[in-house]
Simulated scan of single mutants.
Amino acid sequence: MRKIRLTVSYDGTDFSGFQIQPNRRTVQGVLQDALAKLTKAPVHVVGAGRTDAGVHAYGQVVHFETDSRIPVDKWPLALNAVLPPDIVVREAQEVDRAFHARYSATGKTYVYRVDNRRYPDVLARRYAYHVPHALDVERMRAAARHLLGRHDFTSFCSAKTTVKGDRIRHLRRADIVVRGQDIWFCFAADGFLYNMVRILVGTLLEVGQGMRDPEAIPAILAARDRAAAGKTAPPHGLVLWSVSYGDDAHNPVDFASIF
């Protein structure tokens, strides 16, 4: 058996998330169906992360095992020929048996796009959260600096999470970049909790609107209470940008190239 690693992009709009679910269209399910069609055998796909319904990916990583002899450099072409247009395989590698898309990962980078125009950009409606209110970017950047480092992010984790143990994560990057009337939030960490990025964005947007003080962030972290943080931003602005495995640094984010 061979183990193949794929880098996959997808538009999450018409998926009920990554993880396979009965009678639902999911990224995992569509990938498994495509692989079964090519290999003529059932194939189990393992992803680096379980993106929610409506969340997109530029650099999701998955692995699967197969006894197919398709050359590794032919997998993207073969899969893209049978996949629907909202999933694209960008790269394939044959990896060591010890590799695991989820457990071998050393970090992830997410980006979140906010359309800050007075009226929404109709062409961005599937990929950006429209916030028509004036946003103070410098206040949001000041708040984001308090998030950097190792913290217990319970306050920024959905109350529906199934994580019972350690909720400490090391947030390595919390950048806010303005491109025209778009505001991009970029977060890189060793791992993320359920809805963590969307809650971070929702809280920072409240800071940008003057509803919270930037200096309130340490107290929100210390509270370890979901009720202390802001609302959860909607899923369609979020993109899983890249997954790191220690042998590759987080890819630089070219915000203009995502969509």
Score class of each variant (00 low, 15 high):
His170Cys: 05
Ala142Val: 00
Ala144Trp: 02
Asp166Trp: 11
Gly107Glu: 02
Asp190Ala: 02
Ser104Thr: 02
Asp190Phe: 01
Val111Met: 05
Phe156Cys: 12
Asp136Ala: 13
Ala124Val: 00
Val178Tyr: 02
Thr203Cys: 00
Ile176Gln: 12
Ala189Val: 03
Thr162Pro: 00
Asp182Asn: 13
Tyr119Ala: 14
Met140Phe: 05
Met196Lys: 00
Gly202Lys: 08
Leu135Cys: 09
Asp136Met: 03
Tyr103Ala: 04
Ala134Pro: 00
Arg167Tyr: 14
Tyr119Arg: 13
Ala143Asp: 02
Asp121Trp: 02
Arg126Ala: 13
Thr161Asn: 13
His100Thr: 01
Ala174Asn: 11
Trp184Val: 11
Ser155Gln: 08
Ile176Cys: 11
Ala143Asn: 10
Arg172Gly: 11
Ser104Asp: 06
Ser158Lys: 04
Cys186Leu: 13
Ala188Phe: 00
Gln181Pro: 00
Arg167His: 15
Cys157Thr: 15
Lys164Asp: 09
Arg117Ser: 12
Asp182Lys: 13
Thr109Lys: 01
Ala144Gly: 09
Arg126Trp: 01
Ala101Leu: 08
Phe185Cys: 09
Asp121Met: 06
Arg125Glu: 08
Val131Leu: 08
Thr109Ala: 01
Gly191Gln: 04
Ile199Asn: 05
His133Ile: 00
Leu135His: 08
Val177Gln: 10
Lys164Glu: 14
Ala128Val: 05
Gln181His: 14
Leu205Glu: 03
Arg118Cys: 02
Gly165Val: 08
Pro132Val: 02
Phe185Trp: 12
Leu204Phe: 07
Pro120Lys: 13
Phe187Cys: 09
Asn116Cys: 14
Ser104Trp: 10
Gly107Ile: 03
Ala144Asn: 08
Ser104Arg: 09
Tyr127Asn: 12
Val137Leu: 15
Asn116Asp: 08
Arg117Ile: 01
Arg173Lys: 15
Arg125Phe: 06
Val122Tyr: 07
Thr161Gln: 11
Arg179Pro: 01
Tyr110Cys: 08
Asp190Gly: 11
Arg167Leu: 15
Leu204Val: 04
Gln181Phe: 05
Leu204Thr: 04
Leu147Gln: 04
Ala124Gln: 14
Arg139Gly: 05
Leu135Ala: 04
Arg118Phe: 07
Asp136Lys: 14
Glu138Thr: 06
Ile176Ala: 11
Tyr119Cys: 06
Gly202Phe: 07
His146Ile: 06
Asn116Ser: 14
His170Glu: 12
Ala128Pro: 07
